[in-house]
Amino acid sequence: MAEAATVARRPRRRGRARRAPSRYVLRAIVAAYLLLLVAWPVSLVAKNAFADGLTDLRAILEDPDVMHALGLTVRVAVVAVVVNTVFGVGMSILLVRYEFPGKRLLSALVDLPLSVSPIVVGLALVLVYGGRDGWFGPALEDAGFQVIFATPGIVLATVFVALPLVIREVVPVLEEVGVEQEQAAHSLGAGALATFRRITLPTIRWAVVYGVVLSLARSLGEFGAVKVVSGNVLGQTRTATLVVEEKYLNFDKGGAYATAFLLALVSVACITVVSIIRPRTSEETTP
């Protein structure tokens, strides 16, 4: 008696008939392109990181400055992800389920951080929150709250660059699912909070997960914006990405590759995790 979901899915026709040679040619071109551009170079980072066995890796893990940088990076990333998830989910619901003037403009602006140069991001934050000439900076610093050249600035920069990621995952799901389940919940007496908790949140659960993982990868890897706002103070505001740059420029190639390897490992792990748990598009049903 079980039936598929109400939306009729076109039967997938597997065209096994024509195995034209062009198919293999295309595959080869794509494979070669991705190999030369991505696969090989990335694997070389791993190779170079372990060129001297585990020495380089051990060296950076025992370096207190590097460990501090790693710790700072993780702390900042976690805060940024939490902030962006709360903001992202709230914003997604507002953009999909409500009408208000300027909605379309806001929706476009939300995507802005993705196409803004990280250096510009850093500059923008300095202009507003910089301690010397910023719009709010001096006032904040007088109140004892330093933003630029301190951790809060790094957090702001990281939140900025990863802002759209959760929203871009959640919005399509909210639109696809439609508002009926929520209306049904209302008609059964559920208030806004109960509906959100019991119906909306479970529906967007996986989209939020994907968004979180992608935000995490992005937040851990931010470089340009952080470079501008952090002042790169050794032992205090240096993040992992800044460590990579510094080590390379100081001819500690081994250290640079080892740190880069750690960062690459985490990003690749993030995408792999998302790729594994995300169902294939053709069989996808709303969770």
């Binding site: 980072v45 990868a217 890897g221 990579v244 390379y248 880069a260 960062l263 790729s275």
Partner: peptide, 21 residues
């Protein structure tokens, strides 16, 4: 996964990655 790597990889690491090849 390969296609998404450039999106998730820190840019400084990307530089190092390209440098190695």
């Amino acid at each position: 996964v390969l296609i998404d790597i450039p999106f998730a990889l820190p840019t400084i690491v990307a530089g190092l990655v390209l440098l190695s090849l």
